[in-house]
């Protein structure tokens, strides 16, 4: 009975993780486990990972849970470790479940590291980070000032008031405005929760209450369409510039209509590339240098030995001109 169960589990594992080609060397394989398969963001990471694998001459396995279930994700990671792949990277769903697996991986000689979402203090080999909160907060303000000038009033529409990442970004926006652009007026952030329609209502009200408003920043990705739609409906295209942290697919129609001037995020394809590159470095036992320029990257990636973070570089800025080069 138990044997049968194990066999079934093994078969399921092979199906779930994509068995290695017979000719491939497991030790020369980098795996990436996303939080969820089948969504455009992680599909883009997969594409980038494939490209890196081809460039660097390693095998690449992409496998993850079908919903954001930490236990399922953990099982996939464990299966990959059991297969003896060279390196496994994880976009961590639950940081607390990862630490024991790191030990398990070390015992088997597998390099386990994190990418896209970290588990600090878990003993992971490295964290491949997409952007820093500071980088994202500063970039959106810098880009805004470039478009509307320093003497302008800009509103912030956020999602949940309790979301720590959103609040961190807002904190760095305010810091940047205070330190570098003293004449820029950032209005108190408004919170729309997770609702796109509420974000549109808030954006409309903000434009009514502040006739001199020059820009609206949608902090949560759920607020972007609301902000864009509100600017279109109010007929303020050109006089109010919308922006936010949202993917090209979300922002596309607003970038094209002109209600959005730009969108700030990172390129998950590049993040996927960097993930596989980092895995290859780990397999080869090469240390990370403080700064490395990878082919096709706009800015050098940096490594901080103190935190063990390998940073993709400056956030990406999407505009009407380049948005069609991305699909996530």
């Amino acid at each position: 009975m138990l044997r049968q169960l194990k066999l079934t589990l093994f078969a399921a594992t092979l199906l779930a993780t994509g068995a290695l080609p017979a000719s491939a060397d497991p030790a020369n394989t980098v795996a990436f486990v996303p939080q969820l398969i089948g969504i455009p963001y992680f599909n883009a990471m997969e594409e980038g990972g494939k490209k890196a694998a081809a460039d660097l001459g390693v095998e690449f396995i992409y496998s993850g849970p079908v919903d954001t279930n930490p236990v399922d994700q953990l099982q996939i990671v464990q299966n990959l470790i059991d297969q003896g792949v060279g390196a496994v990277s994880v976009s961590v769903l639950d940081a607390s479940t990862i630490a024991p697996v790191v030990e398990q991986a070390k015992a088997k000689g597998v390099k386990l590291f994190t990418s896209d979402s970290d588990a600090p203090d878990s003993g992971r080999a490295v964290y491949v980070a997409q952007a820093t909160d500071q980088g994202l907060g500063y970039a959106i303000i810098d880009e805004m000032v470039e478009r509307v000038g320093e003497e302008a009033t800009v509103a912030i529409v956020s999602g949940e008031a309790t979301a720590s990442n959103l609040n961190a970004w807002i904190g760095f926006m305010q810091e940047r405005a205070k330190d570098k652009y003293p004449k820029l007026t950032l209005l108190e952030p408004q919170y729309a929760g997770g609702a796109a329609d509420r974000a549109a209502q808030i954006a409309t009200d903000l434009m009514a209450a502040n006739p001199d408003l020059k820009g609206i920043i949608g902090v949560a990705s759920t607020t972007c369409p609301g902000v864009g739609q509100a600017i279109e409906t109010a007929g303020k295209i050109g006089s109010v510039i919308g922006t936010g942290y949202c993917s090209p697919n979300t922002a596309r129609s607003y970038l094209k209509s002109g209600s959005f001037g730009y969108s700030v995020l990172w390129d998950p394809a590049k993040l996927g590339y960097l993930t596989v590159w980092a895995g290859k470095q780990l397999i080869d036992g090469k240390p990370f240098e403080a700064s490395v320029q990878l082919p096709g990257f706009d800015s050098p990636t940096t490594y901080d030995p103190a935190t063990g973070i390998l940073l993709l570089g400056e956030p990406a800025v999407f505009t009407a001109d380049n948005v069609d080069q991305f699909d996530f």
Partner: peptide, 11 residues
């Protein structure tokens, strides 16, 4: 009005 549907619509 909004010409989009988010994951959190109607919450």
């Amino acid at each position: 009005t909004y010409r989009n549907v988010s994951m959190t619509i109607g919450a």
